[in-house]
């Protein structure tokens, strides 16, 4: 198994943290992982993306240009990365704010209305965890229990009261994700 994933969206959406929790959760299963951010002079509202590779073997390149999975959280990212998904791969996206939807026929396409769901929750910052939950339902190698462990281990002690809200968000994402071209 070798899964190459890109997560892309706006700065501030929690793209990098989502990738980190995915990598951490995969590590719980003794899988090999790499997490490579697009670092730079970036800011809230700018673009952010991270490449996560999860594999049963030693990972060669942490930088790839085609992906098994693309989690795309704004229009720019969708436009930029739709054609970088390998045939047979998968796009997971949030339709909120999207005017041009993915058009590929040779890949699976999943939707999760994470932004609108996050608006109903205690804090909209759980957006990324809703998306992460959705990803777990798309045939991902990552397990819910490892994600919960990863969330607890990644949050500093002073934020531990937020763990239940985040776990709830993950579960919500698992519930509301839809495959739209099956």
């Amino acid at each position: 198994m070798n899964e190459e994933i890109i997560i892309a969206g706006f700065g501030g959406q929690g793209v990098l943290l989502m990738g980190k929790i995915m990598a951490y959760a995969a590590m719980m299963q003794n899988l090999e992982v790499s997490w490579m951010p697009s670092y730079g002079p970036e800011m809230r509202g700018g673009t952010a993306n991270v490449t996560v590779v999860i594999s049963t073997e030693r990972i060669s390149s942490p930088i790839v240009n085609s992906y098994d999975t693309a989690i795309l959280l704004n229009q720019q990212s969708l436009d930029k990365f739709e054609n970088s998904v390998k045939p047979g791969g998968m796009i997971l996206y949030d339709p909120n704010g999207i005017s041009r939807h993915p058009e590929r026929k040779d890949i699976k396409i999943f939707q999760v209305s994470a932004a609108s769901e996050a608006a109903k929750m205690l804090t909209t910052k759980t957006f990324n965890m809703i998306v992460l939950g959705a990803y777990l339902k798309t045939g991902s190698p990552i397990r819910l229990e490892d994600v919960i462990k990863a969330i607890s281990d990644s949050l500093p002690e002073r934020h531990h009261h937020l763990i239940p809200a985040n776990v709830e968000a993950v579960k919500k994402g698992m519930e509301i994700v839809q495959e739209i071209n099956s």
Binding site: K20, A23, M27, E32, V33, S34, W35, M36, P37, Y39, I59, P62, I63
Partner: peptide, 10 residues
């Protein structure tokens, strides 16, 4: 370099 410094791995 910036790749090895910024990337996360096990």
């Amino acid at each position: 370099d910036g790749i090895i410094g910024q990337m996360m791995e096990k």
